Simulated assay, not measured.
Amino acid sequence: MSIHKQVAVWTAKLDALGFDIGNYHVSLYWALLVVGVGLGVMVAGRAGNFLVRRLFRRMHRLDPTQQLLGEKLAGVGLWLLLGLLAIDFLGIDLTALAVFSGALGLAIGFGLQKTFGNLISGIIMLMDRSIKPGDVIAVGAGPDKTVGQVNRIGIRAVSVITRDQIEYLIPNELLMTSTVENWSFSTRDVRLKVPVGIAYGSDVALAERLMLQAAHEHPRVHPDPEPSVWLTAFGDSAIQFEIQLWIDDPEAGVGNIRSDVLKRIWGLFGEHGVHLPYPQRDVHIREWPGAPVRDS
């Protein structure tokens, strides 16, 4: 018996193990065929996405945002095409299942509403380039603010990696509907403010020069625009200053620059006799226990 006839015999045996639902015959052969086609679609889809990704990465005339947008659109089109081919190969008549498919589609629509919303939001972000891989963004406010670098923009969420190497997955729709600080949207230059206080009686001009020296000596601080020092207030115990400096690599962190500048200021103040403030209070004693009472 030839291989073709053997396959036909086994197909007939597997097809006989089943039951009928209306005009449709559901059998073990059909179930195995569905599983096989499903696995084939998954393998073909992943391989196609890999080839599409490599193809767009070689298009050097496109910037990274355009490459990523092309990958996403081509990937969605590829999965839709493979799904339609699988339905056609299995011989599923969607017109006969119009009522069932309509109800199923409605249920899927409600269940995947957020998923489709995140998908469309991700495509829109890539099209208008409001957020792109490599950007440094801040989401939220106050102590709950999340600051990090965008690692990738997926179908459902944006991956943001903080300086603590914690990766946050923020839904695309949330980034579209809430206020987001993008530190590198139009330019990568970011201004930092470092507050410093000196004690009353210190040489103000000398303190300003030393603060500027500490800022200029840091390798990540821009020489243009130059750092500046502003006197902001006369506090209860200190003269308050603010050092304003510029950097162009916020993804490398901002707290470490403040720390380095402040440590350098500490050393320079100590070398030149500029004193740091400490709280001072004047206490007026109206009556001391056991002391003679004086006539007023």
Rank of each mutant, 00 (worst) to 15 (best):
G45S: 08
D128I: 11
L112E: 07
F100L: 13
I123N: 04
L85F: 14
S121W: 09
A96I: 02
L112G: 05
F100R: 04
K72Y: 05
D135E: 01
G77F: 13
N49L: 15
S121A: 15
D128N: 13
G102A: 08
L62I: 03
M125D: 04
F50L: 12
A103S: 07
L62K: 01
L80Q: 01
G117W: 00
L51I: 13
G109A: 10
I131Q: 06
D135G: 01
F110V: 10
A107R: 04
L69K: 00
W79C: 02
G91H: 12
K114S: 10
L81D: 00
S130F: 11
S130G: 11
V136T: 11
L126D: 06
G48L: 13
R46Y: 14
L82N: 06
V52S: 13
F50E: 14
G148N: 09
A98S: 05
N118G: 02
I137P: 11
I137L: 03
G77H: 03
M59S: 03
G117Y: 00
G148Y: 11
G83E: 00
L126P: 05
L73K: 02
R129T: 14
V99N: 02
L82E: 03
R54E: 14
D93E: 08
G122L: 05
Q66N: 10
D88Q: 11
I124F: 09
G83C: 10
L90I: 13
N151L: 15
G134Q: 05
L126W: 12
V150I: 15
G140N: 08
D128Y: 06
R54F: 09
I120M: 11
V139N: 00
I92R: 01
L119E: 04
I87D: 04
K114Q: 12
A138Q: 12
L82Q: 07
N49Y: 10
D144C: 03
D144G: 06
S130M: 02
G117S: 02
R54P: 08
H60Q: 10
L78Q: 04
N118M: 02
K72C: 11
L68E: 06
I137R: 01
P64S: 08
V52Q: 08
P64W: 07
H60K: 11
G148Q: 08
L97K: 00
F100C: 05
